[in-house]
Structures are given as C-alpha cells and as structure tokens.
Write a protein that binds this DNA or RNA. Structure first.
Ligand code: FES
Ligand code: FES
Lengths: 157, 157
DNA sequence: CTTTAGTCCGACCTTATTGATCGGAGATCA
DNA sequence: TGATCTCCGATCAATAAGGTCGGACTAAAG
C-alpha cells in the first residue's frame, strides 16, 4: 500500500545521477543524456525519456537540444525537495480518493464521512515529511528522519 | 499519488462506526451488521461485506453469524492502529516497488540503486506515523500530529 | 548551407490493479 | 423447519500504470 509509481522511482534515480555528475569532482557541469542514465540503471529508455520530459516541463531540470545535448538541474540540490519531484510526476499528493474534490463532483460518503478530517491531517504530515527532504539529503547528507506524534499512546517507544 | 484504496477508506469508516455504536451511550454493546453501515455511508453493500470479512480474518473485528448477527470490535479502540487497518486491507506498506523483494526476484535497478536506503527511511517514518495513530485518536481524541525532520533546512529546526 | 545525431512531444497499446458483482454454502435463531 | 444473515470463492468491469512508437524540431559538425 501507499506505493509510489515506478516512474517516480526512475525520476528520483535520474535526478540523483544528474546531480552526481553535475556537482561531482570528475566532470563537473557536464550535461547528461537520457541514454546514459537508462543504461546505468537498466531503465527502459523511452520511458525514462518521458519521465525526464515531464520533469523538464515542471521546471526541475533544463533540457538542451541537439547533439551533445542532455539535461541539467535547474536548481541546486538543496532547493529540490522529494515532494516536488514526486508531485511533478504523479500529480498532487492525495491520500484519499476525495482529497482534491473538484467543483461539482461530491464524494458519496462526504455527508456522513467521519474520517475526512483526521486523514487530511495524516496527509499533511506525510507531505511535510517529503517536502522537508531535499535531493541533497537523499544523496547522503543527513538522511535521518524522526517523527513525533503527541497522539501516540499504547505504543511504548 | 500515495493514495490509499477505497476499500481501505471503507474499512476505516466502518470500524469507526462500529466503535461508535459499541462504545456509545445509546446502545452500547450492540452488534452492527453490514447493511446498516452500507446504507449510512453509501457504500456498495457487497464490497463492504468483503472488506469486513477481511478485517475479521485479520482479527480486528469479530463476526457473529446468523440473524441478529453482525460485527464487534475485537479489541479496544486504543489497541487498533491505523497501520493495522490499512495493512489488513492493502497488504504490507511498501513505498517502493521493491520494498519487499522476495527471494529470487531482484530489482533490475538494485545493483546501482542510489535511492533505496533513503526511501526505506521515508517509508519507515510513514509507518511510524500510521502505527502511532489509533482508532481512538481518529475518533476525535487528539488528532494532532507533528513531524520533525533534522534533515530539513529552510525550515526552522 | 546541408547533413545528421540527438532531443522533444504527443499519441498509442498492453498489462496490472482496483472496484464492484454474483451465487451458493454454512450458521443461527424463531 | 424455514427465514435470515454472514461467510467465501470466483468472476467481471473500470481505471491506472507501465511501456512503446513515430514524427517534429534543434543544434552541432562537416
Ligand atoms: S471519503 Fe470522501 S469525504 Fe470522506
Ligand atoms: S529501485 Fe529496486 S533497489 Fe532501488
């Protein structure tokens, strides 16, 4: 449950790889093309291409056309959060089916729904978690995260 | 993204309803049948039945057969966590596709995967969040949850 | 200026998952 | 004994995800 899609997975891998090349010691500033990433991580080329296009459209990376073209990060690794990446690929975070109800369509359960409010709080917590973690963190900076829940009881920690 | 299924939604609603009846002031201890819940919340009867069956199989509720039958909570509302409910319906929490890799099948990306470790930490955080929240909490006790992330920056620590 | 390798982009198909349904077996109470 | 209710497996339909294809465009090299 609560699985993120493979596309999102690929996006995370690709971004980290680009960051690694771009800010690494070996060839800093080099553009990275789709093929390179696809082969390195065994990702279907065409699919990865589409993922990268989406990321570019969302302003997370810059695309450079033509031969010797490829992608570059649009911002520093500290300014790209996991939430931004995931939302760019999979759309806005919505833990329940009716988190983002559009005008007109109303959840059948809404009238007597007793779980909407608490679930939205859970959703918000998860969002904070993802939005407080940057690409930089994921690359080995300080990937340590803890949670405190005042509503916890019965579960001794 | 990160959506939980409707079945899980229904499960949460149903459990809260049962708890409300069972521990409420009006008719404490009364068993609740599927039809009652389905009508109250506009849930397809057959589907809800299956959800409740699954919950019963997982030991979260007790089923009473025959006429005047129905369901009762197996434990107190403080001893049932959201994680238990969700996992009972949707299977174990797995944020990535390869979180629970079985023997033999190996993720193609595993070899050079650079995101596995940090993602598992995220997953663990979410699990804690869900496992620290009980049915009691969701029913209006103290639905307040906060998160602290030491890896956060730009956000006051 | 022309060629050419490469990216860009949208449409398309296929498969997996979820949501929902059906029909009968077994249990309980009047 | 008969009516009512839960239990359980199998099954179908809708939706979303994973993956593919072909053409348009762009920039570097000759
Ligand atoms: S499930 Fe839609 S409002 Fe609660
Ligand atoms: S995606 Fe499978 S190990 Fe990282």
């Amino acid at each position: 449950m609560l699985k993120i899609s493979k596309k999102a997975d690929y996006a995370l891998m690709a971004l980290q790889h680009i960051a690694l090349v771009q800010f690494g010691d070996v060839t800093p500033g080099r553009v990275v093309n789709t093929k390179e990433i696809a082969e390195e991580y065994n990702i279907p080329l065409e699919l990865l291409a589409k993922v990268l296009q989406t990321l570019a459209k969302n302003g997370l990376i810059e695309s450079h056309n033509g031969p010797k073209g490829g992608y570059l990060l649009a911002r520093s690794t500290r300014q790209i959060t996991i939430a931004q990446i995931l939302e760019g690929i999979e759309g806005p975070l919505g833990i329940t089916d009716c988190s983002h109800e559009k005008e007109g369509e109303l959840c059948l359960q809404r009238e007597h729904c007793n779980i909407r409010t608490p679930l939205l709080k859970v959703q918000d917590s998860i969002y904070q978690l993802l939005n407080n973690m940057t690409l930089q963190d994921m690359m080995g900076g300080t990937p340590l995260i803890t949670i405190q829940s005042p509503s916890a009881q019965g579960v001794a920690q």
